[in-house]
Design a protein around this nucleic acid. Sequence first.
DNA 1: GTAAATTAGTTGTTGATACAACTATACACC
DNA 2: GGTGTATAGTTGTATCAACAACTAATTTAC
Lengths: 170, 170
Amino acid sequence: MSCEESGECTRSITDPITLVGLIFESAQALRRKIVPTIEKETGVTGQAFEVLIRLSRSPGGLLRMSDLAAQTGLTRSGLTRTLDRLVEAKLCLRASCEGDRRGTFAMLTDEGRERITAAISRHEADIERILGGSLTKAEQDQLVALLTKVRNCVHPEATMMSTAPLAHSN
Amino acid sequence: MSCEESGECTRSITDPITLVGLIFESAQALRRKIVPTIEKETGVTGQAFEVLIRLSRSPGGLLRMSDLAAQTGLTRSGLTRTLDRLVEAKLCLRASCEGDRRGTFAMLTDEGRERITAAISRHEADIERILGGSLTKAEQDQLVALLTKVRNCVHPEATMMSTAPLAHSN
DNA sequence: GTAAATTAGTTGTTGATACAACTATACACC
DNA sequence: GGTGTATAGTTGTATCAACAACTAATTTAC
């Protein structure tokens, strides 16, 4: 039995594979617990839900395809297909982009915004229920702080909203 | 710009979605950075690599299909296919299970063990290089401790090696 | 102002995973 | 000891995402 369980060797783990393995495992297991619920509620994929969240947090509820892809971690082609499904479901629409006719905006519809708002509340409750028992608030905050460092290191694009070429957003 | 970047509101984040989102993002971005290297080196999928790691950590280098599935987070059908590929690549083989003719063991071949051992070293160096700059050793340990709690909560099966019906392993 | 290079997004194709249905073995109970 | 239920693993099917090739529009360089 490794020292992870005993909890008494937090000082000399020095095994980076354990760390990465834990991140992968936690993500995968959480995904399995949370995503099916989301999919039932919203009728869209977990990845699509991520897209909706990003859009809902963006001013105007729209974002360039490339920026959205960078933020969600989807490839551009993956995003094209995901958005196809969201448009099909009437939760998003494509808007062409004045001034750069290569560009396309992905944009929340009113229905999309309603759906995502409702889903987010239930989603939050779900997570609380799942994680609340095993992590105190303080630990959650600590974890957020540490993971933010990791995320900023491995995926800085996720926070680049400010520098996104969306200055002309309207 | 959210408070995650400023680093000054670690006390009242209270947003569980942020936490889960960070876990997902970190995992996905890490996967993108690390897995392609592994795949080039070993010739197998990231998931398959995970299977090999689990086997290499198991006494005798073998494990029942169901236990392996539980540990890796694959479905049993997913594991069947993954193991097909590993057998095809001569890194694993199937061994039948005395005493329970329903059961099958997945087992590392010698070549599989060599391949995984070599890959693990390079894998570790990779991770060090990627994460070393952004997290101190102490922070890494802290993160491991916190994520272990999360993992044990959402995926306790991953640590059930002791209770696995492998007492008769030989 | 026109050709070359870059950027934005979509489409063809392939590989991988999940879910559900299926077969075979083991166990429980009468 | 025979029937019913549970368990182990595989196979059929559909979906989703990645990679690469492609089209269209913009920028750069001359």
